[in-house]
Write a protein that binds this DNA or RNA. Structure first.
Lengths: 230, 230
DNA sequence: CGCTAACTTGACAAATGTCAAAACATGTGG
DNA sequence: CCACATGTTTTGACATTTGTCAAGTTAGCG
């Protein structure tokens, strides 16, 4: 009884994930049998760099960061996963050890989808395959942007770029940006030290492009930010 | 007559591409109807950054580089495609403008697979979908490695890393590496200026880890290279 | 040969990181 | 409401890394 109930809850949760929204309800229920819900506490590591993938994950609640480790703990955060998003699919398909580690930023609930569960479904439902293809393609595109930012742009350009992406709509000249996390987290995602990030913010403020108060950044002149990029 | 012949040739070429090796012969023939073979001359641009994707490409012969452009022509080469490899799948699925451009390094022959040709097939053959998933996953993995190299490693570490990947088998202490292209191309892939690349090779030579003669690098002490990474 | 392109070297400049200290914020218990 | 402890952010002085520019050098090739 308890088992059936829990399995139903999982099926319900799975159905709400965009990836599975078009999958036959019966198939979702069948898959739910193999899916576990994990609770990951703040600071806990979900998988380490070097671990062997056995499936992929969907974040239900909380926040999970994917990052490169480094000897002195000066990790570089690649991405912050938010509820509803999946992660680890590509590494599952490859079957190679994780090149990154994942850690909960706050207490989180995660679905663990084992490889068999999904590969079985893939054989039946080509639409799911297309959706996964689309999902992974988005990731790939983000990585390309990240790499471009990293190799073609200065620190100020990367910050300006981030502020532009946060614009409510293209063309707005003035708007507020609420940073999604502590400044050192944002800095790490931009591949900057917290010190450099702080200094860049200072310079942009001096030139009248933005105003900073805590985690809220008021963009005063979007056009000016755009010009920085060239 | 001519058309039929050409279409057969294309089907033949497609069958030899790993991606389509397990697809039903009839389906390959059907797809071949929509596929064109392009000839791209040395230096010619296949697609520009900002162009809209209409499909993806498979390189039959020659060499194609994918790179980020920059105002002063100081491009950053992301990847060099070799015969048999496909490229542009992920961007096709996304339908967003190309974030990179592609250029022929030498005269090349390319297959142009329009989006419809492949999406039709994907509905029929889930194995193909899985193969594409695997293919894109490899790309994604490579991008992650690239990004890690870019953000976590010094210039010398990136060069050492590249030399290790070129090792004939893990654990070999001494081996020769033939650079796949001119040094400034390799440097760009490592996100280095030619000058810095040259200096790094000099330093590694000084410390007795390698010997350089033209495009051939003799690794003398693989263990020593590994230690650089830490 | 002699020309062009590729590569190297040196002197220098710019960008970014490091370390340490100070300033600021935030929450807690008295 | 204060005082303290804790964690985050800013600032300054400095070191390091890497890029830039200009001038050589070398190497391939007609």
């Amino acid at each position: 009884m308890m088992m059936a109930k829990r399995s139903n809850d999982l099926a319900e949760a799975l159905r709400r994930v965009p990836l599975f929204s078009k999958v036959e309800p019966d198939d979702v229920v069948a898959m739910a049998e193999h899916v576990r819900e994990l609770h990951v506490e703040r600071g806990e590591i979900l998988f380490q760099k070097g671990d062997q993938p056995h499936g992929f994950y969907i974040l239900l609640e909380g926040r999970i960061t994917l990052a490169f480790p480094s000897e002195q703990g000066t990790e570089r955060i690649l991405e912050v996963i938010k509820p509803g998003e999946s992660f680890g699919e590509a590494l599952m398909f490859l079957g190679q050890p994780y090149p990154i580690f994942s850690q909960a930023g706050v207490d989180s609930r995660v679905l663990d989808i084992p490889e068999e569960a999904i590969t079985n479904l893939l054989d039946k439902d080509c639409r799911l395959a297309k959706r996964m293809l689309a999902g992974i393609s988005i990731r790939l595109h983000e990585l390309i942007s990240n790499l471009e930012a990293c190799s073609m742009r200065s620190s100020a350009q990367r910050v300006a770029c981030m502020l532009q992406h946060a614009a409510p709509s293209a063309g707005t000249q003035e708007y507020d940006v609420q940073l999604p996390a502590a400044k050192h987290i944002v800095a790490s995602q931009l591949n900057l030290t917290p010190e450099t990030f702080s200094r860049v913010l200072h310079v942009l403020t001096e030139s009248g492009l933005i105003e900073v108060s805590g985690r809220v950044i008021k963009v005063l002149n979007a056009e000016g930010l755009r010009k920085l990029q060239l």
